[in-house]
Amino acid sequence: MNTRLSKVELSRKIKDAGYEDAFIEAKDIASKELITGKVYFKKLPSGIDVHCVNMTEHTEGYSNSQIDACISINVLLAGKVSFALEHQRYDIQAQSSPVLFINIINSQQIFTRFFTQQQQVKKVNLSITKQWLLTRCGSMANRLHIEKIFASAQSVFQWPCTEKQLTLAAELYQKSLDETLNFQWELEQLALQFFCDSFTLLSDNLDRDAIPPKEPDINNSPLPVSQFDFEAKIESLLFESLSLKQIADKLGASVSTLQRYFKSHHQLTLKEYIRNQILEHARRRLIFDNQSVGEVAYHSGYNHVSNFSSAFKKYFSMTPIEMQNQYRNLE
């Protein structure tokens, strides 16, 4: 069954995956559907992040998130993806057949993913942090090899997808979306096999140019100017009990400027935006930190649990207890 995701709902999924500073900008802010389809994020017990999508993008826009040094391995099964690493934009397209592309993120960077109206995308992604790789090196020579990869002058590599890689990617996609899967190790085994095969290809290319990669399409169109700093800075001030004037002073803007910005970009007043972000944090505390409703209400700045529960239900259409039970039933 396809899922319909609004800007807020997609942002929630991305933040649940660990990218807590994620920001989404949509051209059509009135649209209640940013994407439709299947979107899956999972951090496996081994530490590998798996991300699978089969979706249609319904409006122009982009998402920003800060990512740590990592290797991101992708099989684009269908469609086109546009993204930027810091200030360099890339376009990858599966025209007649699937393609494999690998991104080397050599330091903490801003990753921008662009949405295109009516663009269909089917993709499998694995991300492995640099630290994950270094802790699994058996010798200094292995560590130096990892450092050499991350020192590469090229950030994005692209190859045609082999039959083996395509088979692994297809299996990984199916098992990732399989809600009846009993054993996570089946998914981990596939993910590790897929990673090892792709990592060998990358290593061989850097060592001997065994299979020369295709040059990715570099898009030189200007990147959008984002007010990402407003959201990021407010995120750090959510729990300081500041007045709107004090928040505005810390952001270096007037209250009226902030009110216009948040009304334009989020269709919310500044006060409503702050309240909603506090409730989003509360949701994650309930689900991932397994805190009691009373604890979460206190951390969220509510003096009475009943007031917190009422605000929570109004925003999420379920009570905090119902939210916790819903996720506990998935375990």
Rank of each mutant, 00 (worst) to 15 (best):
L144I: 02
Q154D: 14
D204E: 07
I149K: 14
A141M: 13
R208N: 09
A169D: 13
T162G: 03
L133N: 08
A169S: 06
Q193R: 03
W159L: 15
W159E: 08
F183L: 12
F150P: 14
H145A: 12
Q174T: 07
E186K: 02
T162I: 14
L190E: 02
V156Q: 11
Y173K: 14
H145F: 12
S176A: 06
S198I: 11
L168A: 05
Q165T: 12
I211T: 06
N205Y: 15
F195L: 15
D197V: 09
T135S: 15
S152T: 07
N205G: 10
L133A: 10
F150A: 10
T162W: 09
K148Y: 07
Q193L: 05
N205T: 08
T180R: 02
A153Y: 05
R208E: 12
S139F: 11
L168I: 02
Q174M: 06
M140P: 00
N182P: 04
C196Y: 10
Q184S: 09
E188A: 02
L144W: 01
K164Q: 15
Q174A: 09
A151D: 04
S198Y: 09
C161F: 04
C196T: 14
T135P: 04
A141D: 15
F194M: 13
F183M: 14
L202T: 04
L134N: 08
W185T: 13
R143Q: 09
F194S: 12
L172G: 03
W159C: 10
E163F: 03
F157A: 06
Q174K: 10
L201F: 15
K175N: 01
R136K: 09
K148I: 04
T167S: 07
W159D: 13
D204A: 08
T135N: 11
K175H: 02
K148N: 15
C137Y: 14
Q189A: 03
R136I: 10
N205R: 07
Q193W: 00
N142L: 04
E163P: 05
E186F: 01
A153S: 11
L177Q: 10
T167D: 09
T162Y: 08
Q184H: 09
D178T: 01
L177P: 01
L187Y: 08
F199T: 15
R143I: 01
C196V: 12
K148D: 03
D207F: 09
S139R: 14
W159N: 13
K148F: 10
L166R: 15
A151S: 08
T162D: 06
I211P: 05
C137V: 12
L206P: 13
D209M: 11
L134A: 03
H145N: 08
F183W: 08
L166D: 02
L168N: 14
N205W: 15
D209R: 06
E186V: 01
D207P: 07
T135R: 08
E147K: 05
C137E: 10
L134C: 05
T180V: 02
A141R: 07
I146V: 09
E163D: 10
S152G: 07
A151G: 06
A169T: 04
T135D: 13
C137I: 15
W185C: 04
L134I: 11
N182M: 11
E179S: 00
A191Q: 01
D178N: 13
R143C: 05
E186A: 00
L181I: 09
E147C: 01
M140H: 05
L133D: 05
E186P: 00
V156T: 14
Q154I: 11
Q189H: 03
D204W: 04
N182T: 07
A169P: 04
A153C: 13
